[in-house]
Amino acid sequence: MNLEEVDASAWSSLESAAKDPQSGFRFINLCSVDVAGRPQARMVVLRRADTAARLLDVHTDTRSPKWLELSRNPFVTILGFCASTRIQLRLAGTTRLHSPGSDLAEKAWSELSAWTRRTYAGGPPGDELSDDETVPVVAGDEASGKAFFGVVSFRAESLDWFELRRADNRRAGFEYSHLGALVASRWINP
């Protein structure tokens, strides 16, 4: 594969992962910095990928620490690894938050299953549970979670692609314009 094919394949994999719960890139790490300047990483579900714009969307509860972190510092890294292809994708870029009631949050909410909607109806993420609570009590129906549902849109500025092989690992770097166009690519020593 040449560099353009590697880039196209990486983004095709991300687009597929947003639609296929069994995809190796369906669950990705969103890495940010907390208010104390400490690195934070958490698994999120990739919900949408747009190759032309170099955008990825994930959903979150707006009461979560990550929402506050991203509102203060939009610079993040996204890391994914597909065990079957042995490919790692490390993307760096910025986030934009779409609050409850925004057009994107409304559209995304309308496409969620009732079960997923109910996950936003409970207490704030990270709240302490009592000793006898093993599962948080969901106070309210699925509609009550809509007030806390937000979308995080990530725009990639760069991609570090790495293929782990038995011999001759391969690595490439890609840079994108603010409109998503590929502006630079190169092979990198793994």
Rank of each mutant, 00 (worst) to 15 (best):
D132C: 02
L89Q: 06
A108C: 12
E142Y: 09
L79I: 05
D127V: 10
T77I: 08
L112M: 10
V137N: 08
F81M: 05
D131C: 02
R118Q: 04
T77D: 15
W115R: 02
L104N: 06
S99K: 05
E133V: 12
A108H: 07
P136T: 02
A143C: 10
S130L: 07
V137W: 12
S144E: 14
T85M: 08
G126C: 07
A105C: 06
D131W: 05
T119W: 00
T94F: 15
R90E: 14
E128C: 09
G126Y: 08
I87S: 09
T134P: 06
S102A: 08
W109Q: 07
F81C: 01
V138G: 01
S102V: 12
S130N: 09
T77V: 05
A92Q: 15
D131Q: 01
T95W: 14
D131P: 06
R117Q: 14
V137M: 13
S110I: 07
T119F: 01
G140M: 04
S102T: 14
D103I: 11
S99Q: 12
W109S: 06
S113F: 01
T116L: 03
T77H: 13
G101R: 01
A114E: 14
Q88R: 14
P136W: 05
A114H: 01
S99V: 12
G122Q: 00
